[in-house]
Amino acid sequence: MDEHESPELTEDEKQLFADLMPEDLTEIMDKGVNRRHFLKLMTLAGGGILAAQSAVAEQVLTRSSSETLPTELVPDSLENAVTVACKVNGKARTFTIDSRMTLLDTLRERLDLTGSKKGCDHGQCGACTVIVNGSRVLSCLTLAASCAGKTVQTIEGLAQGNRLHPMQEAFLKHDGFQCGFCTPGQICSAVALLDEAKKGHASYVTGNLRPPVGPVKLSNEEIRERMSGNICRCGAYPNIVAAIQEVHSGQSVEQVFRSV
């Protein structure tokens, strides 16, 4: 939709905007619907009650879709299509998907972000771990539809340009992988884990749960327990723990290559 287009809103449309985006209503009435409003509307109503049930919402969405949806291919026969706007690796993305599509499949098949891996598709391996709204979650058990309005960070979003994230550097140094398939999930999990430690989160191996909450220094055993949702079949576990400990503690962890 053109930034300056100023459509005449029907009463129903006004009501819709008033319900969903009261803080923007004045601006909309004055200057019309712009792209930002539209994206926000999609976020709020993305497949929600209104999108599904309100003819008005559908009209608004439909009217704008030809210009705002990405030009990517949408399979013809989508059932229960849901349009989702969210932020992926800092960029606003909007896509229309079958309601069944997981965040993992959406990232991989629709957004060309194939770094997140499908290892089991049932939340039993952790290879699909991404960071949504700051928390590590399993993208295979997350419906993309439920991500409307959220921020998603994947392995592709960790490095700043050519500068690797410290966790990526540490994995490289400590050889925290072999085949590399679980690695994006391990790294995303590890990055989020550091924040959990800063917030003072406990784990099953934390001895005393009762002292006051504050940032915690993690032992290797704590890191192991907290990373246990990320399976590495190649068995790079000790190297992964060393990498995470190095970043967590800020102290270099020694690498020993022994021969006699």
């Binding site: 991989r108 194939t114 994947t154 990526q168 490289l172 140094k173």
Partner: peptide
């Protein structure tokens, strides 16, 4: 360090379905 390491830690290494 592993030559293919950077591709692996950045998620850019293409496996079969990638």
């Amino acid at each position: 360090n592993r030559i293919d390491g950077i591709a692996k830690v950045t998620g850019k290494a293409p496996y079969s379905m990638d």
